Simulated assay, not measured.
Amino acid sequence: MRILFFGRGVITTQYAWAFEQAGHTVEFYVRKGRKETFGSSIDLEMWDARGGKKLIKESWNIKLHEEILPKYDLIIVSVNTEQLPEAAQFLSTAAGNTPVLIFNNIWQDLKSSIAPLSMSNVVFGFPGAGGGITENRLRGGFLKMVFLEKPREGTESINNKVKELFESAHFKISWVRDMQNWLWIHFAMNAAMEAEVLKRGSFPALMNHSDSFSTVGKHMREMTPLLNARGAKSDMILLLLTKIPPALLSILFNKVIFAKGSLARLFVEYNNSKAGFAVLEVVREAKKLGIPLPRLTVALESTEYYNAVENSIS
Rank of each mutant, 00 (worst) to 15 (best):
K63W: 05
K57R: 15
E45Y: 14
I56C: 04
K35Q: 14
E27D: 12
F38C: 07
E36W: 09
D43V: 05
R34H: 14
E27F: 04
F28A: 09
E36D: 12
Y29W: 15
F28Q: 03
G39K: 02
M46V: 14
I42E: 03
W47F: 14
V26N: 00
R34I: 09
Y29E: 07
K53A: 04
K54L: 01
W60V: 09
R34G: 08
A22R: 13
K54C: 03
T37M: 13
R50W: 04
I56L: 07
S41L: 00
L44Q: 02
G51F: 03
T37F: 12
V30A: 04
K35W: 06
K35M: 10
S59Q: 10
E27I: 04
S41Y: 07
L64F: 11
I42W: 03
V30H: 05
V30C: 06
V26L: 01
K32A: 04
K63N: 10
W47D: 03
L55F: 01
Q21D: 04
K57W: 06
S40W: 11
T25W: 08
I62S: 02
K35N: 06
E58P: 00
K53M: 08
W60H: 15
G33R: 13
D43A: 10
F38A: 11
G33W: 14
H65R: 14
K54R: 12
E45D: 15
F38D: 03
F28R: 12
S40Q: 15
K57E: 14
E27W: 05
S40M: 09
Q21G: 02
W60A: 09
I62F: 03
G39L: 07
K54T: 08
E36L: 13
R34Q: 14
H24Q: 10
R34L: 15
M46R: 04
A49W: 07
N61V: 11
H65N: 10
G52F: 08
V26I: 03
D48T: 01
V26M: 02
E45P: 05
H24N: 13
I42L: 12
K57M: 10
K63F: 10
R34M: 15
D48V: 02
M46S: 12
H24S: 08
T37L: 14
I42F: 04
I62Y: 02
G51M: 06
T37W: 05
V26K: 01
H65C: 03
E58G: 00
V30Q: 09
E27R: 09
G52E: 05
E45A: 14
G33Y: 14
S59F: 02
K57D: 04
K53W: 02
L44N: 02
N61G: 10
K32G: 01
A49Y: 12
G23A: 11
A22F: 12
M46D: 05
I56Q: 02
H65M: 03
S40Y: 14
S59T: 13
M46Q: 11
N61A: 13
F28S: 12
L44V: 08
G39Q: 09
R50V: 07
N61K: 11
L64M: 11
